[in-house]
């Protein structure tokens, strides 16, 4: 058992990272794109809300982008950004954007007209109304989108292994094969899954903290938001 555990965490030298180092790298490669995607998605979503005619074409473009497989995206980008982390992160940012724009648009649009009218009646300007009323009410929808984007981003980083070992924990998969060390495959899969579950749980926590007005019980129909997150 001791031997197995030792082998399990014994990362081959060619990866040039400890296990913890790979975890850090993986998180960075997965989360920075989601953050970038969110920053881009907020203004794009706002434009789609302001100009309704814009939303269908934006949805169309994002659907096409989402249909491009990550591996193909990576390989095509090598031409421009080389075999670097950036090549992995750009597609992941695009996928995040694609998930987040509709989440934000639907979330902000779900704010009832009377709520907006009430805010206006209270003297809120459009900017203040957006940041203090619309955006906070849309938080559950945005977090739902973030959860999907983050979990899939964490999973997809591994594919970066194929473009010159830019896949962080995914690099273990290739080394497991060339050195005949299956325990490294287990390590990669288990660690990646745990990271995804942890980050997902953190996002749920963030939602609970950001939306203190939401019922936080777990009984019955109140479960619905959590389920909807998972459904995307």
């Amino acid at each position: 058992m001791n031997g197995f555990l030792h082998d399990f965490f014994d990362i081959p030298s060619d990866l040039q990272h400890s296990w913890i180092g790979l975890v850090g790298l993986h998180l960075r490669e997965a989360l920075l794109p989601v953050a970038a995607g969110l920053l881009l998605a907020l203004p794009i979503a706002q434009l789609c809300i302001r100009f309704r005619w814009l939303y269908p074409p934006v949805l169309g473009i994002t659907t096409v982008l989402y249909a491009v497989p990550s591996l193909a995206f990576f390989v095509v980008l090598i031409n421009y950004t080389g075999q670097t982390e950036l090549t992995v992160m750009i597609p992941l940012a695009v996928y995040s954007l694609v998930v987040l724009v509709p989440a934000i648009v639907d979330g902000v649009r779900s704010v009832p007209q009377e709520t907006l009218s009430a805010a206006t009646a209270m003297g809120f300007g459009p900017l203040r109304r957006y940041f203090q009323v619309q955006l906070p009410i849309a938080v559950p929808a945005i977090i739902a989108g973030l959860r999907v984007a983050t979990v899939s981003s964490i999973s997809l980083v591994s594919v970066g292994m194929l473009i010159g070992n830019q896949g962080a924990l995914g690099n273990l998969l290739h080394d497991a094969q060339i050195y005949n060390r299956p325990e490294l495959t287990w390590n990669s899969v288990i660690t990646t899954a745990l990271l995804a579950i942890l980050v997902d749980a953190l996002l749920v926590l963030v939602r609970v903290l950001l939306t203190p007005w939401m019922p936080s019980g777990t009984a019955g129909r109140k479960q619905a938001p959590a389920l909807k997150d998972a459904a995307r």
């Binding site: 704010v111 009832p112 009377e114 709520t115 009430a118 805010a119 209270m122 940041f131 203090q132 009323v133 955006l135 906070p136 009410i137 938080v139 903290l209 950001l210 939306t211 203190p212 007005w213 939401m214 019922p215």
Partner: peptide, 22 residues
């Protein structure tokens, strides 16, 4: 849904901090 939204507007005006945290 509408009732939650209404109550949430009230709480946001009381908790502008939420938006700031975001």
């Amino acid at each position: 849904m509408i009732t939650t939204a209404k109550s949430s507007t009230r709480s946001i005006t009381r908790h502008p901090g939420a938006a700031a945290v975001a």
